[in-house]
């Protein structure tokens, strides 16, 4: 009797050992690891079904899309990956009007794009960018000008020149 109990206990242990070593990770376990791998990419979501991972979301470029797939492929238990991630490229740079001018550097271009995005919501003012300096002319209420100034300063221009601005 004692012997039988011992052997059953031994069998249970052996079985547990085998399961622990050879058992495939469950979808829940895979999901947890995949989520951990993708923690730096909050715009990507993953769904796991029987070891097949479906990726979805929006990323700015192809590199990020591939990176997400590579990260997930490294997770133990993943059989295959369906990559449904969409690539939404960032806004194209504003066209250069003056073709005789020296080519703009990236910082100046980024500043122009940023200024264009911001000033769209402020009719009544004209905002120009030249060599890192932002010049504002026109007429605005004090509250609106404060909002505009805060947004423009956030683009790190060399200077925000409001000499031509009338604050109502």
């Amino acid at each position: 009797m004692r012997n039988k109990q011992l052997s059953i206990a031994f069998l249970c242990l052996a079985l547990a050992f085998m399961v622990a070593c050879k058992g495939k990770p469950s979808d829940t376990q895979i999901q947890a690891k995949v989520t951990e791998q993708l923690s730096g990419m909050p715009e990507v979501t993953a769904d796991v079904k029987e070891g097949v991972v479906t990726l979805a979301g929006n990323v700015p470029d192809d590199a990020a899309r591939t990176a997400a797939e590579t990260k997930v492929a490294a997770v133990d238990g993943v059989k295959s990956i369906t990559n449904n991630i969409m690539v939404t490229p960032p806004a194209p740079p504003a066209p250069v009007v003056d073709t005789t001018a020296v080519p703009m550097n990236a910082a100046e271009e980024a500043l122009r794009t940023g200024v264009a995005d911001i000033t769209k919501d402020f009719p009544g003012v004209d905002v120009k960018v030249d060599a890192g300096v932002v010049s504002v002319t026109g007429e605005l209420s004090a509250a609106k000008w404060k909002t505009l100034k805060q947004a423009l300063d956030g683009l790190h221009p060399k200077k925000v020149d409001a000499a031509g601005l009338k604050v109502k």
Binding site: A142, K146, K149, G154, K159, A162, A163, V167
Partner: peptide, 10 residues
């Protein structure tokens, strides 16, 4: 009214 233009604050 931040009109002097001698500060850029982010």
């Amino acid at each position: 009214n931040f009109l002097t233009g001698d500060v850029v604050m982010d």
